[in-house]
């Protein structure tokens, strides 16, 4: 046997060490990003859930105007926390639509009464089907969609006060 071959296991182990050491000392990013950023919105058509408000379908996002798509639920506490920021975005002229995840009509109506209603349309996603198709891993999440129905930005988690400017800018530049 060639002598240098005997050192191969040690070299492989050193490579393995390099990998795990880099993994150990780099803070892990546990945020699950959608693979759909930069891709067109998947086709969906969701029925309405809030009384007097239309449901939501992909067609809404192809009308030439960028929109914010908020994924939320009345049972989700961070969603209530981010409601004021959505209202601010709405006041800044950003059209906001929503998909309600695993929700019921009375619970959602109460939620909107309590926290304000920035939404033009709300689609009813009882089985999280559209949420999964979008590559969203939880609530709340928000997507900026350009006028041709393409996803340009994904915001994971609740929108905080200092996120508002960035999201508004993304909507402006998506025009």
């Amino acid at each position: 046997m060639r002598r240098w071959l005997l050192w191969v296991p040690l070299a492989l182990f050193a490579a393995l060490l390099a990998v795990v050491a880099s993994g150990l000392f780099k803070p892990a990013d546990r945020v699950v990003r959608s693979a759909l950023v930069g891709q067109p919105l998947p086709d969906f058509a969701l029925p309405p859930i809030a009384p007097g408000k239309p449901g939501l379908s992909t067609a809404t996002f192809r009308q030439g105007r960028p929109r914010l798509l908020n994924i939320f639920a009345s049972w989700c506490i961070p969603c209530a926390a981010e409601a004021p920021q959505l209202l601010r975005l709405k006041a800044m002229g950003v059209p906001v639509d929503a998909i309600a995840i695993r929700d019921t009509v009375p619970a959602l109506t109460a939620f909107l009464r309590r926290n304000g209603d920035p939404y033009d349309r709300i689609g009813d996603d009882r089985q999280s089907a559209v949420q999964l198709a979008l590559g969203s891993s939880g609530v709340p999440e928000s997507f900026v969609i350009d006028g041709k129905g393409r996803i340009v930005l994904q915001h994971v988690g609740d929108i905080r006060a200092d996120d508002v400017a960035g999201i508004a800018a993304a909507v402006r530049s998506a025009r």
Partner: peptide, 25 residues
Amino acid sequence: RGAFILALLVIYIGGALALFAARIG
């Protein structure tokens, strides 16, 4: 803790593999 165990891995596995390479011939 991970760094501690990593150091132990270097000593034991690295040491054993180096001993293997040096001696088995």
